[in-house]
């Protein structure tokens, strides 16, 4: 399945649910479809494990990465470059990887009117195993905070539940009632359930989205 339904997709959620890994998967799949995707790394809050770390590798795969000015340089100035606006307005396929929580999503608020004009998909990423968002009401609470900070409304849920290297079939299956509960509480459809490519759950999971793990520790 190819889950990108609109020209512009925003990927937001709690810190550490796996937004960056999902965003990279979406961008790579877009490139594989022959599109020219732009991956916008909007995380100016947390300088660890973000899309901009993968810029060179992604460009070889046909993904253009637009990241914060001076990311990974000696200048500690959290700001976004001018090309973000052009990318949002004109990019053939745009994936925006937000920072975590409301603090990380605040930057998106700066571009909210631009993004809204593009009639975007706003995917709220949930992970049933991520500390502090393991209960549906906690996930809903954080969604409301992100919506307030980003001045965007979520359009769908991306169930990205996993336990990193310990993700098994039961991990995914155990997350489905949680995702359904978040969906019921918010009225948002579940756009995709991300599943490591090695796991065969096609008969058990609706909207299954096979993913690869790109975001890894240096020794993995």
């Amino acid at each position: 399945m190819f889950p990108l339904e609109r020209r512009v997709t925003v990927v937001c959620g709690h810190y550490g649910v796996g937004k960056t890994n999902l965003s990279i998967n979406l961008a790579i799949d877009s490139a594989r479809q022959g599109e020219s995707p732009v991956l916008v790394d909007m995380d100016v809050v947390n300088p660890y494990f973000r899309s901009a770390d993968y810029s060179r590798w992604l460009s070889e795969k046909g993904v253009r990465v637009v990241g914060p000015n001076f990311a990974n340089t000696n200048l500690d100035t959290p700001s976004m470059p001018g090309e973000v606006a052009g990318a949002i307005d004109e990019g053939e396929r745009v994936i925006i990887d937000a920072g975590g929580d409301d603090a990380g999503a605040t930057v998106i608020g700066t571009y909210a009117s631009r993004i809204s004009a593009a009639d975007p998909d706003v995917l709220y990423v949930v992970n049933r195993y991520r500390s502090l968002t393991t209960r549906p009401e906690e996930a809903v609470q954080i969604l409301r905070e992100i919506e307030g900070a980003s001045r965007l409304k979520a359009t769908a849920i991306a169930n990205n539940s996993h336990l990193k290297q310990r993700t098994e079939e039961s991990t995914i299956l155990g997350s489905l009632p949680f995702a359904d509960a978040v969906s019921d509480a918010t009225g948002l459809p579940i756009r995709l359930t991300a599943v490591p490519r090695a796991l065969n759950l096609f008969n058990n999971v609706r909207n299954i989205y096979p993913v690869d793990v790109y975001v890894r520790a240096p020794w993995e």
Partner: peptide, 18 residues
């Protein structure tokens, strides 16, 4: 959160909760 089940945590969060 049930304490016996496995959750994903950053090292820094794990220090605090522990």
């Amino acid at each position: 959160m049930s304490m016996a089940e496995r959750v994903l945590m950053k090292g820094n969060e794990a220090i605090a909760e522990a």
